[in-house]
Simulated scan of single mutants.
Amino acid sequence: MLTDQRHQIIRDRLAVEGRVLAGELASHFGVSEDTVRRDLRELAKAGECRRVYGGAVASAPLAAATVSQRSGHAVEEKMRLASAAVRLLSAGQSLFIDGGTTNAAIARAIPRELGLTVATNSLGVASALSDHPQVELIVLGGRFVRELGTCVGADTLAAIAQLGADLCFLGSCGLDPARGVTAFDSAEAEVKRAMARNSAGIVVAVTNDKLATAAPYRVARAEAIRHLVVEKSAPAAILADFERQGAEIHFA
């Protein structure tokens, strides 16, 4: 495969998924990881991505893949994560669930007999819970951002300030033991931080491609995570770093 062809495939993946892993690309292209790393350096030099440990993440203009684009990525993996995540719930809890396709999958997986109070700024999460017979649903209004599928801004923050939660299901654009939970959008990150502050515990469920990557805006430090829900194939060394900082690991 020619260099230009590899570069275009990398651009396409960054546009949809927001990140790429060097090892996966090397396997897909049938080339060495050194070749892929050289490709990523060239794209980063051109401002088309930002290098991170193990691969690269989209630069800000590319990071705004729409919710519909992201919803088709790793569907089965997100369903397994959701099934594992809802096992952390118990009747009577109050939850914050913010945006993201994994969190929407978690909302859909909440057992129909389980009584909860859920506050969300995500239209996807709200839609998933709109006909749940036992969930008291609180929709946090504000300025709706189509690319994110969530409400952000002063009105959203004011609504969050009036609430408290037992658990916060925090969507993560990147998750790294050193950088913690990160997001691509500053307004989105501000809402996530507010939810985390008003919660007794943070739950993060992530697919492997988000581990050891970081977006520009910090949301929460790694030591703030109480529960980390991951795929069974998640790298053991990275998980050990999170465990040392207090996270309980749950495999999907």
Rank of each mutant, 00 (worst) to 15 (best):
L43F: 13
S32F: 13
C49E: 13
G99H: 01
A26P: 12
R226P: 01
Q245F: 01
R218I: 07
E231V: 11
A247P: 09
A222Q: 06
F169S: 02
N103L: 09
G201C: 12
N121T: 05
Q5C: 09
E190L: 14
L170Y: 08
G246N: 14
L81K: 06
E243D: 10
R11M: 05
L239Y: 04
A178V: 14
S71H: 08
S130L: 09
A196Q: 02
A159L: 08
A161D: 14
A214Y: 03
G164C: 07
C49R: 07
A158S: 03
K210E: 01
E147N: 09
G99W: 07
V219K: 07
V139F: 12
A178R: 08
E33Q: 14
C173D: 09
A187K: 04
P216K: 04
D39A: 09
I238E: 11
A161C: 06
A107Q: 06
L62M: 09
L148W: 10
I202D: 08
I97F: 02
I106M: 01
F96D: 10
G153D: 02
R37A: 02
Q5F: 04
R244M: 07
V57H: 12
V36A: 10
F184H: 01
L89G: 14
A224R: 14
A65H: 13
V20E: 06
P216H: 03
R143K: 12
Y217E: 14
A63W: 02
V152H: 04
L228R: 15
V31F: 12
V67Q: 09
K45Q: 10
I97H: 00
T213M: 03
E42K: 02
K45I: 03
A104C: 01
G99I: 03
E33H: 03
S59F: 06
A64P: 01
A65D: 05
A220E: 15
A128L: 04
E33A: 11
S172P: 07
V152C: 03
V139E: 15
A252Q: 02
S127P: 07
H73G: 10
I9T: 15
A215H: 04
L14A: 07
G171R: 00
F169H: 07
A178L: 04
A119K: 00
T66H: 09
F184I: 04
I249P: 13
